[in-house]
Design a protein around this nucleic acid. Sequence first.
DNA 1: ACCTGAACACCGTTCAAGT
DNA 2: ACCTGAACACCGTTCAAGT
Lengths: 172, 172
Amino acid sequence: MVDCALRLLDRVGLPDLSMRRLATELDVQPSALYWHFASKQELLAAVAERILDTIPAPDAATSLADTAGSIRDALLAYRDGAEVVMSTYALRLGTRRAQDALGASLGDADQTAADAVFEFVLGHTTLLQQRMHAQSIGAVAPDAADPTAHADEVFDAGIRAFGSLSAARSPR
Amino acid sequence: MVDCALRLLDRVGLPDLSMRRLATELDVQPSALYWHFASKQELLAAVAERILDTIPAPDAATSLADTAGSIRDALLAYRDGAEVVMSTYALRLGTRRAQDALGASLGDADQTAADAVFEFVLGHTTLLQQRMHAQSIGAVAPDAADPTAHADEVFDAGIRAFGSLSAARSPR
DNA sequence: ACCTGAACACCGTTCAAGT
DNA sequence: ACCTGAACACCGTTCAAGT
């Protein structure tokens, strides 16, 4: 059932991922979903956890750039993945898998820096995916030649900044 | 009419800011709104621009921390402000006022770093506001003692990271 | 120029009742 | 234990018609 929601998300996007549509996909009445999940939010939390499933276990030997990259990849693997994860992370449902991996790469005891990096990755990827959708709809402003062109550069610049933060700390 | 939307947003939040509710507030039929705005998205773009109106003009003499702080303040001034700005920024509606101010503080010709900082600020503030709302509803997980407690620390850590990026560049 | 009235095609959620 | 049927209180948007 979560698998079906994940496939539907990837096919139609978050705005069109409704309980009614998911029910139709499962050949079931909408009300049947509420025996399994108390609300749509709870269903989305399960979907978010599945999206983050592919990120590797925390490993101090993995560079920040690689860890951040695999989190970005996990979010990009499904349409609107970042937005789904963002909304459930805000409610503190789901695991802290992503932050733990980032924390390990930063070699930091407290999680402040890891939280900041995760917030950057979520913000960046949410924007990127919304832009991808806007572009496919043709709803983008005409002045923007290639909406997603410099996204990688911006992402790298951000990760480099956070990397220099940890480099400045570790020598102590 | 945008003022009314802004007040309504602050009162009820983005999920409850509907065209029908706004119409009721204005003592008008919902369809009347579509003479002024082609869609809800367009209305939200106007609201987003108003939210960002209070951020100061670009000034190289203003520190990155101050500029980022005033952008954060502008977003926090209205309920769900960050999410509204995020969704219209993705569509590239509205101005680049925030990024221009950040670019000036970074003393940078290209806008890559400014974009990265803005993405961090948007991600951070969106998460913070969603958490504030979840808390007021009481819908937050029980293990989180004080959801918004360390938000300032995380924000400062992020901005410090981006600050060190520009510091490492300017000596060249 | 600006708005109404009525409709179209949807939503999330609840809850008694069925099997 | 798991699902149906029917309802409740909503959505964004369109469009002919009014003034």
